[in-house]
């Protein structure tokens, strides 16, 4: 039961409140992104907190660790700014912070989590396009809906298209 931040794309307005909330929480250097696809589809992106994180593997000073919340976090004090994590990430998430010249990325707001709050981006999203839940919680309603549609299709098939076959 580990909670992560997920995007529900069709609720996203592209207001970028999540970016401002993240920046406010992290010394005015946001760790998330909003990519605009074809100029009209906003897609919020943040660290996936991979279970087997390539960034943690390639850090030469072991600055990247998994916390008890299953979040992958870069320890700023240890980071030397080599950029290995930024280069290996399949999603291109870690970035160089202009002020410290070290690498920063989403830390799932573990400081806020430990105070019982949700990550800043989730709390500030006006349309609840960002949700803080376990992956199972996210998938189960989708599976149920799909199962229901299969059932309806089966019923339609049985009673309307081919009523002879009892």
């Amino acid at each position: 039961m580990t909670k992560k931040v997920y995007l529900v794309p069709n609720r996203c307005l592209g207001c970028e409140e999540c970016i401002e909330a993240c920046a406010k929480e992290h010394e005015w250097a946001a760790r998330n992104y909003v990519e605009w696809i074809d100029m009209v589809y906003p897609v919020q992106m943040h660290c996936s907190h991979c279970v087997d994180a390539p960034c943690a593997r390639v850090c030469p000073v072991d600055a990247i660790k998994t916390t008890e919340e299953d979040a992958i976090v870069i320890d700023e004090a240890v980071c030397i700014g080599c950029g290995n994590c930024a280069l290996v990430c399949p999603f291109g998430i870690p970035r160089f912070s202009g002020s410290t010249k070290k690498v920063v990325k989403c830390d799932l707001c573990i400081d806020r989590q430990r105070e019982g709050k949700e990550p800043a981006c989730v709390e500030n999203c006006p349309t609840h396009a960002l949700v803080f839940i376990d992956i199972e919680e996210y998938e189960t309603p989708k599976r149920e809906r799909a199962a229901r549609r299969i059932l309806e299709a089966g019923t339609y098939l049985r009673e309307i298209l081919m009523p002879q076959e009892g």
């Binding site: 794309p9 069709n10 992104y33 990519e35 291109g92 970035r95």
Partner: peptide
């Protein structure tokens, strides 16, 4: 080919995959 793209392009392409969900919905 894993390092054929820079981090920015990797991010944009990953985001591009999400666009399909907009279209599907």
């Amino acid at each position: 080919n894993i390092f054929d793209l820079c981090p920015e392009c990797k991010r944009k392409i990953a985001a591009g995959n999400v666009k399909q969900i907009y279209v599907l919905s």
